[in-house]
Design a protein around this nucleic acid. Sequence first.
DNA 1: ATACTATATTCAGTATTTTGAATATAGGTT
DNA 2: AACCTATATTCAAAATACTGAATATAGTAT
Lengths: 128, 128
Amino acid sequence: MKSPYETQSDFLKTISHSTRLAILGILRDGEQCVCHMEAMLKLRQAYISQQLMILKQAGLLDSRRDGLNLYYRVVKPEVFNVLDILSSVTGVSAKPPKHKHARTACPCPKCNAKTNSEIPQALKVLTT
Amino acid sequence: MKSPYETQSDFLKTISHSTRLAILGILRDGEQCVCHMEAMLKLRQAYISQQLMILKQAGLLDSRRDGLNLYYRVVKPEVFNVLDILSSVTGVSAKPPKHKHARTACPCPKCNAKTNSEIPQALKVLTT
DNA sequence: ATACTATATTCAGTATTTTGAATATAGGTT
DNA sequence: AACCTATATTCAAAATACTGAATATAGTAT
């Protein structure tokens, strides 16, 4: 039904949005939960969720639940190739905001892994 | 003023349009006049001109006049890299329509070069 | 069961993009 | 100058995308 050009422009349309590009940027290093993006991007949760749905419906993302948290990841790593080329064409490389600040703000286990690991395993068991 | 993500999404927005992708596809082999695209794409001239302006204002194209004809070309060849990656990500490669049919329909000197060259140079001078 | 937490969905108003129709212009030819 | 040809511009209607506000849901813990 769809011409190749339409298929391609549909794909481009789903990623030609600054928030969605930022999300993809965050997911470069692997899966992340929604609350993490919320902290990094400083945007409302509902809004981020909307953009995640758009990316997911387009088949770019998939998600995995772990307890209360949902971790999103990029399904096709080739997407990152597009982002790379994009940086070179536009001359600007969009790095996601620094982790440091956001990590403290995001409450998910993954983001707090480092902090938690400072608690010795033996002690950790006791505190649970 | 503009964040890197905005710059990138602006670029993506200008190319995420099937007609504009088709135009870029046609310009892969080098500059072409508007009437050529008109014949290849079978779209109205005014419409193609609009899309050309969008691409030009975005800094992707430039044009050169030769007599009555205006030849457009892609300024940054890196753009083609984006198109290539795009094909691999989407799984569809968008080839421009066959030359053969269009060439006869396009009246510009460039497209009729082959036909004209069949007329011996000496004779050609006489016919002019 | 109740309450809480992380995430999703719906809806509506606004802004932007798309597309077509009509018209304008600039350069070339006679 | 008058006319033709190739291309550009303007305008408006229709379609689509963006964004925010409010609300819903699905797990989890108590």
